[in-house]
Amino acid sequence: MIGNRARTGGFLVLWPTRYRDNAPASLSEEYKDSYRALIAMAYYASGDVARARSRLVLLRDADIAAALISQAQRSMMEGRPEAEVRALSLLGLEIASGDNTAPQVTLLPTTTPLTPPTSLPTSTPTNTGVPTPVVAWTPTLANTPDSASLATSQASQDKPATQSGTPTPPTSTFTPPPTFTIAPLPHPHPPLLRASPSTWFKNKSFATRTWNSP
């Protein structure tokens, strides 16, 4: 009995299990985050979304885009470098959109629109020669209208009142809502020429390989 235990302990100490030849999917969550961030930064450097996607597949996330965006939010809260947060977000949006166009949405919205609104509502009436005044009835809170004045007001609402004098057009101001800036984010470097993602590594495709055996 003691001999068996000694032999077992000897194997554990002298010949322990060595983990090697693992795939990125087997990494702990902490290292997966580092790996994912590095993928995003490499994408940020090269602009090669196909390669980034192939690398992300290795992590076997259920939803790649959600994992990226979630990590971007966590990184932002943890005070990680802005470039990393930006790269994660851009890649997440790019993966989510599913196309290979250049990312065009920046992270931080600004309240200053880059382009003025194309159509602003104009309240200037057109002068047709015969003024057709439009009287807006606005009840005042200070005076409680009695029934007679209320009836008069109702009548003035039903049909245009004939009013003497120069009509003053109603002034309406249009305040455009704050808009988010949609501006192209230039990559620091042009995309590099790449080999096909399926030919990076020897043997076979990552997506179809099983990593379970040691």
Binding site: Y19, R20, D21, N22, A23, P24, S26, L27, S28, Y31, S34, Y35, L38, I39, M41, A42, Y44, A45, S46, R55, L58, W200, F201, K202, N203, W211, P214
Partner: peptide, 24 residues
């Protein structure tokens, strides 16, 4: 295998990792 560390990655994954570091 789960909860492994990057130093246990297979050599071609490590090579790609180095390439990513070079790109960054």
């Amino acid at each position: 295998y789960a909860e492994t560390t990057p130093d246990t990655l297979r050599v071609d994954f490590k090579t790609d990792y180095v390439l990513m570091v070079a790109e960054v």
